[in-house]
Nucleic acid binder design. Structure first.
Lengths: 331, 331
DNA sequence: TTGTAGGCGTTATCAT
DNA sequence: ATGATAACGCCTACAA
């Protein structure tokens, strides 16, 4: 039924070794047989069995992409960056998600590292520790982590601290002194860094950070923003600005609730989000926010991992990308 | 370096055949050797080489998911549906996108169908013809198409015609007679069906369709909506409602531009979108729209394809899911 | 330039 | 209950 090298070999009057060499463009094949073999291969509509090839070469020509959650627009956008370059790359992408199930995570890593199903791994924005990622190094499966810097692993990430600094400083130069900060601890390192950037900006302008206007939300939805605003509005002195490293959706919730309560944005309350999701342009006033170069991150990630797999690069590489501050109407 | 069946076999004093049987829970193995083998396997931290296994069993335990474009929130959401069920399923997901490159598409199908890299294929919302999908049938690779009904292929889809009918009829019962329709032809069958539903609703209420308020946009972004509104506003008699099967982003553009021009939504102009994207709740007034059960579609798709692959179902199956009309503030 | 032979790690069919 | 042995389809020395 399916055409194999052997089928071609028989018809061409050669052995499958020869056919293999032709298919793989190896040198030292006479033009005559090359032509003949290629012709027959085409007639028979031959496609190599990649599984068999993988067994022989010990390469699957496939890379794994592990994501925490496909519901995150950040993750999807990075994925898109990975895929779009991948057009010209002869690697297949296998998608895995861990949906926060902590125990399954390291199990998944084990399997991926040892089952020889993939040649390398891209890990997007996760809360795993570096230790848990060691399996890949142990099995010498190239790996790279996106959205977070890791000392002992290749990584592609954004300067979150600086992004937050820029945003906060912008608010300060606009005259704000009481700037609330809405963050989300459980999201891990990146939000932590953003918080630090916020603090640094305050410090560099001799403004004391007020702990009563620092909030920690659990999730990053619009409802969280609504709830936060309701807590925020009664605090005195009331902040005149809010920086929301927790994400744009939370910021949007705040905008909505503020408007509903008759608070004018940005006049009474300026708001800066983080991420530049599509809805940031939809809300009125349109949201000022910090954009991360998500597509670019994906792009770097796939290229770096392919280089690693093919042995073109060695040593740990870090790629830091800049954020971009997008000024719209909410400030 | 890597542990194989043979390694285990040697230490256990049996052959790799026996070890294989133990690993795969085959019957007719003495408890003693089973215990012994399992113990050694664990000590050595053995994981089967799935590539080798695939060659032997002619199964890759992997399914391909082909998407036209990861930038579409519809596609991503269906993907999410596929992945979330997939947790308990022993199939890996390989992601492919075709980014509209028509010529590459059938080439991709050829490869996927013949390279034995995947056991089955899920195709999300694409404009390919049934003919192009024949390769899968020819190579007896189970396949299923999502978001569109195909006579000769398994499919999971939504009753777009009815969804559009419901939306339009709702507008009619609200007293509207001049209802514009913004569609997007190039998106293929589903939009076509929605248009038909719109027409049917008009007919069933003896309203004549006006061709001067039927618009065709090329893309489905906010800008398209803005542009459409500017064309719409000068038409007499001016429509009092707009149904936008082209999608929520276009509808949002219309809302925004209408507001900017001082037209009151919904009082002066009622607007209904299609898809229920996250931003539909963000815009003010919140958008009335037609929701498709995207997660559910992905869920059905993965389960159907797995059943097919494992030979549990045969014959062509179609699963039609209902849309849900979401009433918000724009009507 | 091409053929021979062996191996990649598993599974599956026979014997034993 | 277990062992030999032969696939699976391809690649790669090495030999000719």
């Amino acid at each position: 039924m399916t055409v194999t090298l052997k089928d071609i070999a028989i018809r061409a009057g050669v052995t499958s070794a020869t056919v293999s060499m032709v298919i793989n463009n190896k040198p030292n094949i006479s033009e005559t047989t090359r032509k003949k073999v290629l012709k027959i291969a085409k007639e028979l509509n031959y496609y190599p069995n990649v599984i068999a090839r993988g067994l022989a070469t010990k390469k699957s020509n496939s890379i794994g992409v592990i994501v925490p959650n496909l519901a995150s627009s950040f993750v999807v956008r990075v994925l898109q960056g990975i895929k779009s370059t991948n057009r010209d790359i002869e690697y297949t992408v296998q998608l895995f998600d861990t949906i926060g199930q902590k125990e399954r995570e390291s199990q998944l890593f084990q399997r991926l590292a040892r089952e020889r199903r993939i040649d390398g791994v891209i890990l997007i924005s996760s809360t795993v520790t570096e230790e848990e990622l060691n399996v890949f190094a142990e099995e010498s499966v190239p790996s790279i982590i996106v959205a977070r810097r890791c000392e002992h692993l290749d990584s592609v990430y954004v300067n979150n601290e600086q992004g937050a600094f820029d945003a906060t400083e912008y608010l300060i130069t606009k005259g704000h002194r009481n700037i609330a900060c809405i963050t989300t601890r459980k999201q891990g390192i990146p939000t932590e860094e953003r918080y630090n950037g916020y603090l640094r900006a305050l410090r560099s302008h001799q403004i004391e950070a007020r702990s009563d206007i620092l909030f920690d939300v659990n999730d990053d939805g619009m409802e969280d923003g609504i709830e936060i605003f309701d807590r925020l509005k009664n605090i005195v002195p009331r902040p005149t600005a809010v920086f929301v490293p927790a994400g744009d959706m939370v910021a949007i919730g705040i905008v909505k609730e503020a408007k509903r309560e008759g608070i004018k944005v940005p006049d009474d309350l300026a708001i800066v989000g983080y991420d530049d999701i599509p809805a940031a342009e939809v809300i009125e006033p349109a949201l000022t926010t910090v954009r991360q170069p998500k597509l670019e991150m994906g792009d770097y990630a796939i290229n770096m991992i392919v280089d690693k797999i093919e042995g073109r690069e060695s040593g740990i590489k870090h790629k830091e990308l800049p954020t971009k501050f997008i000024i719209r109407e909410s400030t």
